[in-house]
Amino acid sequence: MNGWLVAAAVLVVAGLGPSLWGAARGGAGRRVVAQNAATLLLCLVFLLLAQGYGRPSYVDLALVTSVLGPAGTLVFVRLLGDEIDAPPPGLRLLTPLVAVGTPATLVPLCIATGPGRALLKLLVVGALLVAGGLVTSRALRHA
C-alpha cells in the first residue's frame, strides 16, 4: 500500500476534478480562480507522485509548476482584467487551500525526505507555492 500515491489519486479526483468544473462554466473571474487552484493542486500531486514512485527527479515538475502556475494566473489577470468581476466567486476558498494544502502535503514529505539537498528543493517549492498563492489571490481581488 503506497499512501503517497493514494493521496495523489485523492487530490486528482477531489481537487483537480472540481477545479475543472469551476473553470468550465461561469464568468471569467471564477474560471481564473479555478485555474489557479488547479496549478496549486497539480504541483502538490507532482510532489506526492515523486515520493510515491520513489523518483526524486520528478520533483523538478513541481518546481517548474510552482513558478509557471502563478505566472500563468497573472497572465490571465493582466489580459482579462476588465472581464473579471471583483472579487470573483470562489476567491475566498483560495487562501485556505494554499494555507492548509501546502503544509499538509509538504510537512509529511519533508519528514520522509530527511535533511539534504532534496529537502531544500522541497522547501523552495513550498515557499514558491505559498508566495504565488497569496500574490495571485491579491491580484485577483484587485483585478
Binding site: P70, G132, V135
Partner: peptide
C-alpha cells in the same frame, strides 16, 4: 504593489 514585489523577487 504585492504583485510587483513578487514578480521582481521571483
Amino acid at each position: 504593489p504585492a504583485v510587483r514585489r513578487y514578480a521582481i523577487a521571483v
